[in-house]
Write a protein that binds this DNA or RNA. Structure first.
Length: 208
DNA sequence: CTTCAGATCACCT
DNA sequence: GGTGATCTGAAGA
């Protein structure tokens, strides 16, 4: 499948916004799980102090970041995994972190993986990867191919997209405050959410 | 409701 | 040996 959202001519910030509303799908032996992306963050390669590739750092762990657009980069930390998608041509280590999803298919499988209910199922980067069964075996694979892929033919459109500072980035100069985090306003699965939930979970009504 | 410490480990220095 | 792109449960306001 060809992904319109990952166009190498677009900026990483633009792609981060376009990915909101896309469906992430993981197919495992146990079954299929999927959910709509409701929260992303942009990481801007060598100049971004908050990125793992700041100042051109290139170690085995971050190697996938330097691959072509659409490559999956998994970062593990504190026994949690985080899902990233490379956004630029080979050699330019920009990526978008998928921070939260709204469950669609396979919610029963997510419940088994997480032992949590409601928004706690997928409202954070480590939570959604655990719920969907995403792990290091997905590192370096392509987001346009199974078993982990994005389906943009069922895309939802956010009513309002909000930009805010990224989470967990202290003491990184201007990069701590830079609004590179994008959320679907009013969606209950957005992490660290305050305020109330919108009708339709913040999605525009489908008019087809 | 909000804040905070501890878990726990791969990877870097 | 030190450090996190986090999560959780417990304690405080």
């Amino acid at each position: 499948m060809k992904l319109n959202e990952i166009d190498q001519h677009k900026s990483t910030e633009e792609i981060a916004k376009n990915l909101l509303g896309c469906l992430v799908v993981k197919e495992t032996e146990a079954g299929k799980v999927s959910g709509w992306i409701v929260e992303t963050e942009a990481y801007l390669g060598v100049e971004d102090e908050a990125a793992h590739t700041f100042n051109g750092r290139k170690t085995p762990r971050v190697a996938a970041m330097y691959e072509t657009a659409g490559t999956v980069y998994i970062y593990s930390m504190h026994t949690h995994h985080m899902l990233n998608i490379v956004t630029q041509p080979e050699g330019i280590p920009h990526a978008v972190l998928i921070r939260a999803i709204e469950p669609f298919e396979g919610e029963d499988l997510m419940l088994m993986n997480r032992q949590k209910q409601g928004v706690e199922l997928t409202n954070g980067p480590g939570k959604m990867t655990k719920a969907m069964g995403i792990n290091m075996s997905d590192n370096g694979t392509n987001i346009e191919e199974k078993p982990l892929y994005i389906n943009d033919s069922l895309k939802k459109i956010p009513q309002v997209i909000e930009a805010s500072p990224r989470i967990g980035i202290p003491n990184k100069g201007i990069w701590t405050e830079e609004p590179l985090r994008y959320t679907v306003v009013g969606n209950p699965y957005v992490s660290r959410k305050r305020g109330k939930v919108s009708v339709d979970n913040g999605w525009k009504t489908v008019l087809k």
